[in-house]
Amino acid sequence: MRSLFDPLQIGDIAVANRIVMAPLTRNRAIGQLPNALMATYYRQRANPATGAGLVISEATQISPQGQGYLDTPGIHSPEQVAAWRQVTDAVHAEGGRIVVQLWHVGRISHVSLQPGGAAPLSSTNKVANSKTFAAEGFVPCSQPRALRTDELPGIVEQYRLAARNAIAAGFDGVEVHAANGYLIDQFLRDSINDRADAYGGSIPNRARLLVEVMTAVAREIGGGRTGVRLSPVTPVNDAGQDSDAQALFEHAVQQIAPLGLAFIHVIEGQTGGPRDVAPFDYAALRRHFPGAWMVNNGYGRAMAQDSVAAGAADLVAFGRPFISNPDLGRRLREDAPWNALNPALLYGGGAAGYTDYPTLDVATA
């Protein structure tokens, strides 16, 4: 019987267990550059004997326009590529594997974070009823500008170049962030996308940007080093339910399946919230994809073990539990208690609430 602690080949990436550290925005980058503190944070969680078999980095912007939150890292400049090396080297020194999550926030941004104070870019000019994190704290999202049709090949190119940069920075692969109401999700959902061009209207049109991005990235670095994150029904970031989410996401998965992707990472239900926020048949979605299937949202030890044993998932991603438990893998294996999370220290700051959570050995001593 398959176990959460068994090794697995994910495309071209061999992992020592099926426990994944989910991408987690922590706002500790300085000038969009990773730093030594971030390297320590990832290293603490990267040893597969005690931590994750696969680490997915925090969401990382593919361009200056892709930024939506203060002090988040990028992967679009030579300086950022060099700075990420200290993180990937630290993870590999622990025997771990790490992929970077490629991010364009779209309309979930503020003019203070955009080059020249310009409007954020989106599928639409409708403002998101949501907030983002800027220098003055949490602020309402700014009015976006709908991307012109002739600008979209440039967006695809930004993803391709970011994927190339990721490999240069030492990452084992990439995860394209197509979830949680960010740019690609803003094109996918008809609750947001109000376009009348080749990227709006029908399901194939709304899925076009996702398919083009995934194709470009897979061609650049290989499908076996490429994954994607989807969230079919989450309402976060003012992402209203699509009129036919089942048909939309089944079509999307069918279109990208031939690319030979390493994995699909699916958020079940509302990100960080109820799993039953809206009906959706995730098993039907999986039947269209031959690669590794990663699940996320609200998994505890028993549920994760049962899902892997039953074949409902190949990997299970844990988010906030990895923040407060750097050795979560060991705690899952030994059924040991978990440290409590301090939510006041999630975003921004220094080592407190970031690299100072105790391991099991320290806690029991």
Rank of each mutant, 00 (worst) to 15 (best):
I108K: 15
V308Y: 05
E212T: 04
A304C: 05
R225K: 11
Y182R: 07
D150G: 09
A284K: 14
A310Q: 15
V20W: 10
I167S: 09
E58A: 13
A169C: 05
I62Y: 07
R286P: 00
A134C: 15
F138K: 02
A317L: 04
V316W: 07
N35A: 02
G240R: 01
V266L: 14
R330G: 07
G348N: 08
A52Y: 06
A83K: 10
R107H: 05
D335I: 08
N47F: 08
G291H: 01
Q241P: 14
L261D: 10
A218Q: 10
A22W: 08
D314N: 08
N27A: 14
R333Y: 06
G273F: 03
V211R: 09
G74H: 10
L328W: 10
T271L: 13
A178K: 07
D172I: 00
S243K: 00
D194R: 11
Y199C: 06
P115Q: 09
M38Q: 12
I203W: 09
G350K: 10
R97Y: 07
H177W: 00
N47W: 02
G68I: 07
F138G: 02
A344T: 15
L315V: 11
R189K: 15
L70K: 14
P358Q: 12
A14T: 14
A93T: 14
R43C: 13
G11R: 04
T359R: 06
A16N: 12
A336H: 09
D281Q: 00
N47E: 00
G222D: 04
L4Y: 08
G311C: 13
G117M: 12
T234M: 00
V362H: 11
G300H: 13
D172C: 01
A179G: 03
L161V: 15
E268N: 00
P279I: 10
Q114D: 02
Y42I: 03
S191T: 09
L147Q: 01
V20E: 01
L328D: 07
A302W: 03
D6I: 06
R164Q: 14
R225Y: 12
P321T: 08
D150N: 13
S243G: 04
A16Y: 01
A257H: 08
L121P: 01
G350Q: 15
E268H: 01
R229K: 15
L113M: 12
A168K: 05
N129H: 14
F133A: 10
I75G: 09
F187I: 03
D12R: 14
N342F: 00
S324P: 11
A83G: 05
S3I: 09
S109W: 05
R331G: 07
T149M: 08
T364L: 15
L33T: 05
P274D: 15
M214P: 04
A198E: 15
G200H: 01
R225T: 02
D242L: 11
P358L: 06
P115F: 12
P235E: 01
E157A: 14
A351Q: 12
Y199A: 01
A317H: 06
T72L: 01
T234L: 08
Q101A: 08
G181F: 03
R85I: 04
D190T: 08
M294F: 05
P144E: 08
S122K: 09
A22E: 07
S77H: 09
I30Q: 13
A39V: 02
S202W: 08
G349Y: 10
N35Y: 01
P78F: 08
V20L: 07
K126N: 12
V228K: 10
Y357Q: 02
F289L: 02
P337K: 10
Q61G: 00
P120V: 11
